[in-house]
Simulated scan of single mutants.
Amino acid sequence: MIRRRAFEAAQPPPARPIDEDPARRVEAKYLRLWTTSMRDLPFVNPALSVEAIGFRRHGSTGESLAGTTSSATGDWIGAVITPWVIGLLLLPGGGSLWSDRRPGDRCHVTFPIGPIEFIADYEPDADLPAYQYCPLFAPPSRFASQIAAQAAATAALDALLKGGASEDPASIPAAGQRESSRRAFLRRFVKT
C-alpha cells in the first residue's frame, strides 16, 4: 500500500530573490505574529523579544554579471529570536541554496557543517512570502535573557557557515553521530 498525504499544499509560484538585507522584514513578520497570535500562549519566554540576527548571503552561484565573483550574491541565511522559538531562516537571494518547495515540505540544505533540514513555508500576502526555517530551540524556555539567546543564535550561525576546523577524514563521525554532535554543540550555548 502506498501512503499519501491527506492534504498536500499547492506549489507556490517561484520565489523572488530578495536584494536587500531582509532583517527588518523578518522582524516585522515575527512581531506581527507575536502581537496577533503568540503573545498569550503558555510556552512563550517573557525574557525574549523578536530580533533578526546575522543575516548574510551564502551559496553564491559563483559569477556576477561582470564575470567576477561577488559577495553580494547568494541566498540569505540568518537567525530569528522570538519568545516561542529560536531558529534559522533561509530566504531566496538568487543563490544556489534556495529551491522552491510546497509549504510543509522538508529539504536538506548543505552548509560547511553538513546538511541541515529546513521546512518550507509560503504566505502569499506577507512581506516575506517564501521562506524556509529550521527551529533550533523550541520553545526557548531555558534562555534567561535576550543576550543569552543572541549568543546562541550567533554561535549556531557561525558553526553552520564555518563548520569545524579542518578535520582529519578518519576522525569525521558517521552521519548519525555527526547529527548528535551538532545537537550537543548547540546545547552548549544554552545557559540558564
Rank of each mutant, 00 (worst) to 15 (best):
L89F: 08
L160H: 05
I86M: 13
I172H: 06
A130R: 09
A151G: 04
S171F: 10
L91T: 06
R24T: 12
G78S: 09
G176V: 05
Q177E: 14
A159G: 03
F118D: 03
W76D: 05
S37K: 13
C107T: 15
Q146L: 13
R56Q: 15
A184N: 07
R57S: 10
R4F: 09
F118N: 06
A23V: 07
L161V: 03
A130Q: 05
I18M: 11
A52T: 03
V44M: 10
F43C: 03
A152R: 01
R3W: 02
L128C: 09
L33T: 02
E27H: 05
R32G: 04
A126C: 07
I77H: 01
F189W: 15
R24E: 13
W98A: 07
E27T: 09
S96I: 08
R101M: 13
P22Q: 12
I18N: 01
C134A: 15
P83T: 09
A148Y: 00
A72V: 03
Y122T: 03
A120C: 04
F185T: 01
I2C: 04
D168G: 00
T154A: 05
A144T: 07
S180H: 08
P14F: 00
F189E: 01
G93L: 12
Q177P: 00
G93E: 10
E27N: 03
A66R: 13
W76L: 11
I116A: 14
I113P: 10
R16S: 11
E8I: 15
E27F: 04
A9F: 08
A151I: 10
R57I: 04
F118T: 04
P139K: 01
R182C: 00
L88F: 04
E8Y: 03
P46R: 08
I172G: 02
K162I: 00
L128A: 10
I18L: 15
A66F: 09
R101Y: 02
A66Y: 08
A47N: 10
Y30A: 02
L31D: 04
T69G: 13
E27S: 01
H108D: 15
P92S: 05
D40C: 08
A165E: 13
F189G: 07
W34L: 09
R5E: 08
I116W: 12
P135R: 06
R3A: 04
S71P: 01
A126K: 09
G87A: 14
T73Q: 06
F55I: 14
R4A: 12
D105H: 06
A28M: 09
M38T: 11
V50F: 08
Q11D: 08
I113V: 15
A6G: 09
Y133A: 10
T69M: 10
A153I: 04
F118M: 10
A15H: 00
I2L: 14
P112A: 00
F143S: 02
A28K: 13
A126S: 15
T154R: 07
P13G: 10
F55M: 12
F185L: 14
C134S: 15
L160E: 01
P124W: 06
V50S: 11
G87N: 13
